[in-house]
């Protein structure tokens, strides 16, 4: 079944609105739908306004921005690397951002300065991007880029393990693990203001890449022969996704599988042209992450489900199913 990209974008847009409202609606304090709308318009009871605007809205906004960043970056990176297995994790940005956060927990920076986790993880993402762009500007092979990403990622993961290895107390170790599992809990407007600008900057850098990505499906040489500046395209995708994903990881922890799975779902609906899957992937990423966050609100056992665990459990079986279904088409 193939549908037109415009129709898909409208359908996803509608779904996004519904999920957004549902996320605002569901919570420990029952609030009627009308009250939520009037709170958004600033015309509700003070207490309800605090719950909706200061407790629920930041969480919803971060979920939408983060999901969209992961979906968009996954689609852009898969297009650039011409590899359906690429995602923000593969270029090492996610784990480097995670490393920054774990280091900040290790040194107890957050007790001195509350936003240190966020800032450190953005620095981690930035570091990974710099190393990656240094390596990839010397060599133009896509394989080099993927291998460099895997190298950076392994190094960051090793450093995370090292830091956890020497954690001062079980408490700090638990903080690290919890943070790495990802969550949207207890986010405030400060988090939105901190990550939002970087997320938007990343999206802005990636604007207009569709044509170049389409041309790249014929190989870098042919793309260049069609007038595409491959180096610029590569920089746009890598830096754009690193900034937006780095900012994402900095406020909600490492969240896997959204960037990997979302483009595959979109491809099964509109075909493989990289330009056609960018915007729908951003929308579906936002929808899926918000839905996953809704699931984490279900009380199970004596702990709380972490977001990264939910996305992995939704994402990986879905991924296997799509691979099974499309195994003939990808060659």
């Amino acid at each position: 079944m193939k549908i037109s990209p415009t129709l898909l974008i409208s359908l996803l847009g509608l779904l996004l609105l519904m999920v957004t409202f549902l996320s605002l609606f569901i919570g420990t304090t029952p609030i009627p739908a009308q009250e939520i709308l009037s709170a958004l318009g600033g015309m509700a009871d003070k207490n309800i306004e605090i719950i909706v605007l200061e407790l629920r809205l930041p969480r919803v906004l971060i979920g939408l921005l983060a999901g969209a960043s992961l979906g968009l970056s996954g689609a852009a990176l898969q297009g650039l690397l011409r590899n359906p297995l690429a995602d923000p994790g593969i270029i090492g940005v996610s784990s480097s951002a995670g490393l920054g956060a774990v280091i900040s927990i290790y040194f107890g920076m957050s007790s001195l300065f509350p936003l240190s986790i966020q800032i450190m993880s953005m620095l981690g993402a930035l570091g990974a991007t710099l190393i990656l762009s240094m390596i990839s500007s010397r060599d133009s092979s896509v394989l080099t880029l993927i291998l460099a990403g895997i190298g950076i990622s392994s190094l960051a993961t090793a450093a995370i393990s090292l830091t956890m290895n020497f954690a001062h107390s079980p408490m700090s170790l638990q903080d690290m693990v919890m943070w790495l599992l990802g969550s949207l809990e207890n986010r405030t407007m400060t988090d939105v203001m901190l990550a939002g600008p970087f997320i938007f900057l990343g999206w802005f850098i990636m604007r207009g890449i569709g044509q170049g990505l389409d041309a790249s499906s014929l190989g870098s040489d042919t793309a260049q022969s069609l007038g595409i500046n491959i180096k610029h395209l590569r920089m746009k995708v890598i830096i754009g996704s690193a900034i937006s994903v780095g900012a994402t990881v900095s406020v909600c922890g490492a969240i896997g599988f959204v960037g990997l799975v979302v483009p595959h779902i979109i491809r099964s609906l509109v075909g493989h042209a990289p330009s056609r899957i960018l915007v729908p992937s951003a929308l579906l990423g936002a929808i899926l992450l918000s839905l996953a966050d809704l699931i984490t609100r279900i009380p199970i056992g004596h702990g709380q489900l972490r977001l990264g665990v939910v996305t992995a459990f939704i994402g990986s079986p879905l991924f296997l199913y799509i691979i099974y279904k499309t195994r003939g088409a990808m060659r």
């Binding site: 790249s216 499906s217 014929l218 190989g219 069609l226 075909g271 042209a273 990289p274």
Partner: peptide
Amino acid sequence: PVHWPLDVNHIIALGRIPHL
């Protein structure tokens, strides 16, 4: 080389990119 399963129409249309 073609790295994604794209349809022929779309592939040939990519040749117009220098003018777009």
